[in-house]
């Protein structure tokens, strides 16, 4: 019996290894089956276009976007030596710098104010969130009227106070700021709503015990509200950040990249190169650069920002 048992044991060990391997493979297969729909959709709508964009960025193209001459990395070299693109890069960063903190701070303030339980607060909540329901195009037309150099309300207001009118959309010093202001206004609806949601889900027992301990309003805000809101804030910052990099509609409506290319943001530049100048190669190269840029910045944001986020 003993003599027999040893080979059986060896057999079992071998089998075990084989079986676990087989099980692993089945598991893997199962996993991929579950992934398949999203992998398929991603390949069709994201990976394939991405690959195609990389491919196109190595070519010059004719007007229907078919590659004609292979130029290697020349499109990238041209882009980085083009003053227009460098300017566009600079404007994009400035724009992100204006709009992200601007929108977050304003809507955070509004959300904290609207979180108070007062009579008729529902009306204000609806008002503050209402810009979410306005399309970029409609909002841009509305701001276009406000910004009109002579008959616009903003300049008439300035006029009433006796100060000189500002060329909101025509003065290169102001154009980017004007577009940023209108963008902040458009973004407030969404960020306000998400932040208010975050505030409402904070457990009110925390405030009650803080009250008993004698903590003041500002102390509660700093020590309870903001830490508890940090996951929501982090989400909102990431989303507005990426959105700001991809701004297009209001630029097309308000300034068309002018004056003097001050508001020539990257996505608008890509659009112009591809669909107005028919330089799909250059446009693709710019798109790849934008992709890498957002990817890198978002990774950095996650690495740095997530440490400060408090998850319950």
């Amino acid at each position: 019996m003993n003599q027999l048992a040893i080979p059986i044991k060896q057999l079992e060990a071998n089998d075990l290894e084989r079986i676990t391997k087989k099980q692993k493979r089945i598991k893997m297969f199962k996993g991929f089956t579950f992934l398949a729909p999203s992998v398929l959709l991603f390949s069709l709508f994201l990976f394939y276009p991405l690959g195609r964009t990389i491919y196109l960025s190595l070519f010059l193209t004719n007007s229907s976007g078919m590659p004609t001459v292979f130029v290697g990395l020349e499109n990238y070299q041209n882009i980085f030596s083009s003053p227009i693109f460098l300017k566009s890069l600079q404007s994009t960063f400035l724009f992100v710098l204006y709009t992200v903190p601007g929108a977050i701070l304003v809507s955070l303030f509004l959300a904290i104010v609207a979180n108070e339980k007062l009579k008729g607060i529902g009306f204000f909540r609806t008002m503050y969130a209402s810009t979410m329901g306005i399309s970029t195009a409609a909002a841009s037309v509305f701001w276009l009227f406000l910004f009109h150099p002579t008959i616009g309300w903003l300049n008439q207001l300035l006029n009433a106070f006796g100060s000189a009118p500002i060329g909101w959309l025509t003065d290169p010093e102001w154009a980017l700021i004007s577009v940023a202001i209108s963008t902040i206004w458009m973004n407030i609806g969404f960020t306000f709503l998400v932040l208010l949601g975050g505030l409402q889900s904070i457990d009110h027992y925390l405030y009650e015990s803080a009250d008993i301990d004698g903590a003041g309003y500002l102390y509660q805000l700093r020590r309870i509200t903001l830490p508890m809101l940090s996951p929501t804030l982090f989400f909102v910052i990431t989303v507005t950040f990426i959105n700001a990099f991809q701004t297009f509609g209001q630029i097309d409506m308000l300034t068309r990249g002018g004056p003097q290319n001050e508001t020539y943001l990257m996505v608008y530049s890509i659009y112009q190169e591809a669909f107005m100048n028919y330089q799909f190669g250059t446009a693709s190269a710019q798109a790849i650069i934008l992709f890498v840029l957002i990817l890198v910045l978002t990774v950095i944001q996650f690495k740095l920002g997530e440490r400060k986020v408090h998850y319950q």
């Binding site: 009109h148 150099p149 002579t150 008959i151 060329g167 959309l169 025509t170 300034t255 068309r256 004056p259």
Partner: peptide, 13 residues
């Protein structure tokens, strides 16, 4: 008078 690239603004001006 500078109306930039916007023709509609110029005409309304």
């Amino acid at each position: 008078a500078n109306y930039g690239t916007n023709g509609d603004n110029m005409i309304s001006g």
